[in-house]
Write a protein that binds this DNA or RNA. Structure first.
Length: 622
DNA sequence: GGCCATAGCGCG
DNA sequence: AAAGCGCGCTATGGCC
């Protein structure tokens, strides 16, 4: 059963209506003055009591509604995020990029003018704007006379109809698409909760670290001592004239005066240059980066109350990876992670899926030999033994080159070896690349569709519509002065689609794992009810009511139910939990990974082992 | 003053 | 000739 919810800003509460899974109303709408209280009364507190028939909350956008609920201490097990689903379905129909808001969906349904989505909000540092129960409505100016609850219900019903139509065409494709919708929605819940918890961050440790690396900060706001010293040393190495090492143009001129002509000041270029300024410049770049991107002002802006609060954006990347707004949460330099410390009596369970993308390639392609290799703990080693004369480094280069579309360097002969032993896997990525070069679309395993080439690309590459074919790309290549020619543009597109099928599927496995983990932890027993996971997917991942947490009657004394998912970075998750709960949490992570594998790929010999460490300091993980 | 493109580097 | 994929963020530098 679903309950549709729209915020009722005027009344300060919300309007709700019960629906069946198809979107048909099960009763009249009603209004509540306090949504948090209403949800608390409806949502089962112990998810383990839910046996497949739990409530799923339907709302326009999770961030809009759930943020306020979480702030009130309310959690829900499952939801259906209308906007994220709309974006997936539009993409599936080749209508990538059309507005996804409730108002837009309603307009498409009723023949009205489709409003553009509002521009993404600016990142909000912690402490600002924390009071409101609801985020500002994402709907791009709801048209007058629109009843949002009616629109929500109707658009949801339409989405279910579109999924049913997909099922008529291909039951398996629809099964996967439903799974994707469920996982995406579960991810949205997790993103809100994660942003709410924040990543435990010790400001004192961070400041000590900064002084250790950068020297004392300038009392007047300029660069810290170590950067000033390095600037002087770099100037001296170039003959004495003052220089701003952070200015590429100045550095290039300085090298030029020294008789060295460089294409750029990139670190890897500098490493090949024999000049006394080079090591100083490399050190300067590294430290300057930390100072500007994760220095004192970053700490001041983004850390509050001992927590770093980024805003996670599920589906913010075309491949389905999450993005973040504010604070650069997905780019925290490893050295800075030393400031991430567990609370007293608590610890971190850090888990990352090693070699995820090559394992995904094995699974989606179904290449039997590669799948067997991906059943091993070290897939590169297994490949090396089987096809690269034991040369692990070469096996790794070959595999990465295949997934990224590398065409030069040492990858070329290695790729040939890969093709000889794993032709099915190679065909998979090469088919995707060919489709992209021809202007076509590719999909992930669960059915996320890549964006089409830009209109200018299509005009440039062949003059045809996207997907209409790829003839004639090579013509006139040498006549172009831009970007290496039409062939180059087509190949770039091919590299994108080649990688998309892998990266997007990896994101699907990762978010499914995360959602299953959430369900296991919420169940309290972390899914300890039997080996191999006898229960269905928990945490709202399973489509059509197959969800519900696993396990029956955990031991609350372990504190597993107090565990918090506090960080997620593509293939890595950090759980903050009481020390005594860590072993159970660690086991739950492994289980979640395995359940995600079976949910996506069924019977496959591919494994997705998680490297789990239990540490008090994130910097100590791995 | 603000806007925008580019360079560069952090992460996966 | 030869460019491996996806991002966010900060700085510079040219522009109005």
């Amino acid at each position: 059963m679903l309950i549709a919810v729209v915020p009722d800003v005027a009344a300060g509460g919300a309007r709700l209506r019960r629906l069946d899974d198809s979107g048909a109303a099960l009763g009249p709408a009603w209004t509540v003055p306090d949504l948090a209280a209403a949800v608390r009364a409806i949502e089962p507190t112990d998810a383990s009591t839910v046996d497949g028939g739990g409530v799923r909350w339907l709302w326009p956008a999770t961030a809009e509604v759930y943020t306020g609920l979480v702030r009130e201490g309310v959690r829900v097990d499952r939801c259906h995020d209308l906007e994220l689903t709309e974006a997936l379905l539009l993409g599936y129909d080749g209508r990538w990029g059309e507005p996804r808001s409730l108002a837009a969906g309603w307009a498409r349904l009723t023949g009205g003018r489709v409003p553009a989505d509002p521009p993404a909000r600016q990142a909000v540092p912690p402490g600002d704007g924390q009071g409101a129960l609801f985020e500002p409505a994402a709907a791009g100016g709801a048209p007058a006379g629109l009843d949002p609850l009616t629109a929500l219900v109707e658009v949801y019903a339409d989405q279910q109809a579109r999924l049913a139509a997909a099922a008529a065409a291909s039951p398996e494709a629809a099964r996967r698409l439903r799974l994707l919708v469920a996982a995406e929605s579960a991810g949205a819940l997790i993103a809100v909760e994660m942003g709410h918890y924040g990543l435990p961050w010790r400001v004192d440790v961070h400041r000590d670290l900064l002084v250790e690396l950068l020297g004392e900060p300038s009392p007047v706001g300029g660069p810290p001592r170590r950067l000033v010293e390095l600037s002087a040393a770099i100037a001296a190495a170039f003959g004495g004239a003052p220089i701003h090492p952070e200015s590429p143009a100045e550095v290039l001129r300085a090298f030029s005066r020294a008789g060295i002509s460089l294409p750029s000041t990139r670190a890897w270029v500098l490493r090949g240059v024999d000049h006394p300024a080079v090591p100083l410049l490399l050190e300067y770049k590294e430290l300057h980066r930390i100072w500007t991107a994760h220095g004192w002002s970053w700490c001041q802006q983004w850390v509050a109350g001992g927590r770093f609060h980024p805003e996670y954006v599920p589906g913010g990347v075309v491949s389905g990876r999450w993005a973040t707004r504010g604070g650069g949460a997905l780019q925290i330099p490893r050295v800075v992670r030393r400031a991430v410390r567990a609370d007293p009596g608590w610890t971190f369970v850090v888990a990352d899926a090693g070699q995820l993308e090559p394992r995904i390639l094995a699974a989606v392609s179904g290449d039997p030999r590669m799948s067997r290799a991906a059943g091993e703990g070290d897939m590169y080693e297994a490949l090396a033994t089987e096809a690269f004369g034991g040369d692990r480094a070469r096996a790794k280069v070959a595999l990465l080159g295949a997934m990224y579309g590398q065409t030069g360097g040492q990858a070329v002969p290695a790729l040939a070896a890969l093709r000889g032993s794993y032709p099915v896997a190679l065909s998979y990525v090469e088919d995707a690349a060919r489709t992209g070069e021809a202007g076509g679309l590719v999909r992930s395993w669960l059915g996320r569709t890549c964006p089409p080439p830009s209109a200018s690309w299509s005009a440039w590459a062949g003059g045809g519509e996207a997907g209409s074919g790829g003839e004639g790309f090579e013509g006139g290549e040498s006549s172009s002065g831009y970007g290496g020619g039409r062939g180059a543009a087509a190949r770039a597109r091919g590299r994108f689609t080649r990688n998309f099928v892998i990266q997007a599927t990896a994101a699907e496995w990762a978010i499914s794992m995360l959602a299953l983990l959430r369900g296991l932890l919420a169940g309290g027993s972390a899914g300890a009810a039997g080996p191999g996971g006898t229960a269905g997917p928990g945490g709202g991942v399973g489509p059509d009511g197959a969800g519900g947490a696993v396990g029956s009657g955990g031991d609350p004394a372990t504190g597993v139910d107090r565990a918090e998912l506090v960080f997620f970075q593509h293939d890595e998750v950090v759980v903050h939990c009481p020390v005594e709960a860590a072993p159970v949490v660690a086991a739950a992570v492994e289980r979640a990974g395995d359940q995600a594998r079976r949910l996506l790929f069924g019977a496959t010999s591919v494994r997705f082992p998680l490297k789990v460490s239990i540490v008090d300091c994130y910097g100590d993980a791995k």
